[in-house]
Amino acid sequence: MTRTACAPASTVLSIDVEKAMSGSLIATELVDFVRANQGRAPLVYSSSRPEQVTALQEKYSREAVARKLDSLFADAAKRLFDAGVRRIVVGGGETSGAVVSALGVTSFRIGPEIDSGVPVLVSEDGVKLGMALKSGNFGAIDFFEKALDAISGVSV
C-alpha cells in the first residue's frame, strides 16, 4: 500500500488477516481506531503483498477470507454509522456491497465525480449518509483524501 498525504502512519490501521480469520480481531477494534482518529482521515485496510494474499487464500480459501473481511468491514461501518459517522469511503467492490447492505441504504443520489468513474453518493432513503464506493481499479493515488473532501461538501 502506498501511503498518501491524507493518511500519516498514525492514522492507518492494517488489518491482521490471521487475527480476523481466528476471530481475535473484531469490528469494535476498527471502530475504536476510527473514532480515536476522527477528523484526521483514518484509514483501515486489509490489502497486502501478493504473496501474502495468496498464502492466506491457500490456507483459508479465497471465499472464506473475502467473506470474513467483508463482514468485518460491514460490521464496523454499521457501528460507526450508529455512532454518528456520516461520511464513509469504501474501497473494494464486494466490500462496498457488504457495507451498503449492512447500512440498509436502498437508494443513492449521484453527486459530483471524485475521480473518473467514481462519484460522491448521497443516500436518498432517510439514512443521511455521504459515501464513496470504489472498486480496486478506479481512483488516483490521492482518491481517499479527495473523496472525504468531496463528501464533506455535499449536504446529507
Rank of each mutant, 00 (worst) to 15 (best):
G93M: 13
I110N: 00
K78G: 09
A98Y: 10
L133D: 08
P112T: 14
A98M: 10
E63L: 12
C6L: 06
G23P: 14
S47L: 09
L69S: 08
V156R: 13
G117M: 05
G130F: 06
V154N: 06
V90W: 07
V31K: 12
I110Y: 01
A150S: 10
V118L: 05
D142Q: 12
G130V: 14
Q57R: 15
P112F: 04
S155K: 13
V122M: 07
L30D: 06
A7I: 03
T95K: 00
P50M: 12
R40H: 11
K19Y: 04
G126S: 02
K19W: 04
Q52F: 03
E63G: 10
G97N: 05
R49M: 09
S46D: 06
E18M: 00
P119M: 09
L69W: 14
I151L: 11
G92P: 08
V154W: 11
G84V: 01
D75K: 13
F81T: 09
D32R: 11
Y45M: 14
Q52K: 09
D142W: 09
R62F: 15
D142H: 13
V31L: 04
V89D: 02
G136S: 10
K128E: 11
V53K: 04
R49Q: 12
A147N: 03
G92N: 04
I88C: 03
A98G: 09
F143G: 00
A74F: 15
V90R: 08
E94H: 12
T106C: 01
R49H: 10
A147P: 01
R62P: 01
E145S: 15
V105D: 01
D82T: 11
K59E: 10
S22R: 11
L30W: 12
P112M: 12
G93F: 10
V12D: 02
L25A: 04
I114M: 08
V12Q: 13
E113K: 03
E94V: 03
C6R: 07
N37V: 05
K68H: 02
Q57S: 07
L133V: 11
I151W: 08
L148S: 03
